[in-house]
Design a protein around this nucleic acid. Sequence first.
DNA 1: CGGAACGTTCAGTGCGTACTGAATATACGA
DNA 2: TCGTATATTCAGTACGCACTGAACGTTCCG
Lengths: 163, 163
Amino acid sequence: MDTATTRFTDRMGLLFEAEGQPPIAGRLFGCLLVSDDPCSLDELAEMLSVSKASVSTNARRLAEMGVLERVCRPGDRHDYYRVAPDLFRRTMADRLRRWQRFTEAVGDARRMLPIRSERVRARLRGYETAYAYMADAIGAALQRWERAAENGRAHGRAAGVRR
Amino acid sequence: MDTATTRFTDRMGLLFEAEGQPPIAGRLFGCLLVSDDPCSLDELAEMLSVSKASVSTNARRLAEMGVLERVCRPGDRHDYYRVAPDLFRRTMADRLRRWQRFTEAVGDARRMLPIRSERVRARLRGYETAYAYMADAIGAALQRWERAAENGRAHGRAAGVRR
DNA sequence: CGGAACGTTCAGTGCGTACTGAATATACGA
DNA sequence: TCGTATATTCAGTACGCACTGAACGTTCCG
């Protein structure tokens, strides 16, 4: 791999690390992001100069998260991976799910904790309603975007989600 | 602290840990979230049964991130902390900033990497435009929400962000 | 001027975990 | 049936980092 691409994949590794993911997962993702065709585990291991074990584990992990997709070719025993076509939607959905966990915890606290202060209760309710509002808004915006992208493709303008 | 509150703060610790933050930071946040008044470092250390050093470090860290706010009382040498009044907006802004870093990396890759495939280039452009669209949408929704909360307070309905 | 009462900093420790190399499992072809 | 080529799993290692107790700096009061 050329040095510029290596810099990019390393950068992705750092960004993933900041999100609590293993660095190799990020480098793997970056690699596939700028790759035309799906890549096999061996290709990825050699490109990134890491062990096949790491590639196997991390690729499977990312596939379970919905970041990557495993693709099999008939008459070929290799596993190939590519970035998930609906990555953007999945990323948004994942973020909403994480926020939801916080909101659930806050809701449980409001209902089950011995909170005397009405101010605190109002504060917690405020977070819950704010989250509900933003979740709705983000979901709606995501739908509008996907509809727009759909139309864009129908009119011949590629939207980067070509299968 | 009663067991129910301890369960809640521990839960917050786990949620923060999943976001790449120290567990104690989460427990600290949970503690202040259900506390009526700002708390001193000693109070927090005793409530959570952790060292003062950890409380000091993590509280300052969270304050720098904008999650907590340090509040000083005249004639009192203690440092008090409370959850930031504009926490929700800050959380959203932080998330947008993180996504922006990804998008910047993708944009740099599209411009500076030797990418032959037009399909890859279109894919990268797709992510960039999708992010720009969602960032706009989220920003607008956030403004609408804050305006609505403002009106709500003006009409006497508390929104959990009182002074 | 001591001397509390704070907050901060620092060396030390333990734990989690990412990564590796080798062993194992599995499918396919000769 | 054996050998080969793939993916997965596992024990081991090394590294990072969260947390602690003690030392340090600072500010205010007697």
